[in-house]
Amino acid sequence: MEYEEPIKAESKSVLGQPMQTCGCDPMTGFYRDGCCDTGPDDLGVHTVCCIVSEEFLAVSKHLGNDLSTPMPQYGFPGLKAGDRWCVCAARWLQVYQAGAGCPVVLEATHENTLRIVPFDVLLQHAVIPDKLH
């Protein structure tokens, strides 16, 4: 008998559509596959695809979540302004509430984010897809 991979349900974005890739340079996602997918092992709920800004990184660091310092032991390169990254939903909300929310790519933000961050808050920070320009 041949082993078959279990069929995985297709992840949906906060828009109810199939998830788009968030970013591959640096490679993001809890599973380091470029996608803000989540699962039972992802206790931090790394589901918000955002484009980090200097202000977001500074406030996040001040609040105890340093995203700019490389941590090679975890395969984490450290982020700089303009990087796309799957941020923990609660951490993104915390930085937003501190006045430093950064742009969010709705098409690449997992629907489970809505359990933590209200859709209208995400919408306020939504990036308009390139195809609409």
Rank of each mutant, 00 (worst) to 15 (best):
P70C: 07
K8E: 15
L114Y: 11
P72G: 02
E107K: 05
S68K: 09
S53A: 04
I128R: 09
M1E: 12
C88L: 10
Y96V: 10
A89I: 11
S53Y: 09
N65I: 06
Y31W: 05
E55K: 15
H125Q: 15
T28F: 04
V52P: 05
P18G: 04
L67G: 03
P77V: 00
W92Q: 08
K12C: 10
A89H: 03
C22Y: 09
A90M: 11
P26N: 08
D120C: 10
A126P: 01
L114P: 08
P72V: 00
Q94Y: 06
P103A: 02
Y96G: 01
H125R: 14
G39H: 06
E2L: 11
N65E: 11
C22V: 14
Y74I: 06
D83F: 08
Y31P: 03
G29W: 02
N65G: 01
D41A: 11
A100G: 01
L114V: 13
D33S: 02
Y96I: 04
L43D: 12
P129L: 02
A9G: 05
E2Y: 07
L57T: 08
C36I: 13
F56N: 00
R115T: 15
V105E: 13
T109W: 01
E107I: 04
L43P: 00
L93I: 13
G44Y: 06
Q124T: 10
L122K: 01
S68L: 05
D66H: 02
C22F: 08
A126V: 04
F76Y: 15
C88E: 15
Y31A: 14
T109M: 02
N112P: 05
P18M: 08
I51F: 03
E10R: 14
S11I: 05
Q20G: 06
H125V: 02
E2C: 08
V117P: 03
L93H: 13
M71I: 15
D120K: 13
L79R: 09
C50W: 05
P70S: 07
V117K: 02
E10M: 14
Y96E: 13
C102G: 02
C86K: 07
R115P: 07
D33W: 00
P77S: 03
G101S: 07
Y74G: 00
P72I: 00
A100Y: 10
R84C: 10
I116Y: 14
S60I: 07
A58F: 05
P77F: 09
G16L: 07
L106R: 04
P72K: 00
E2D: 12
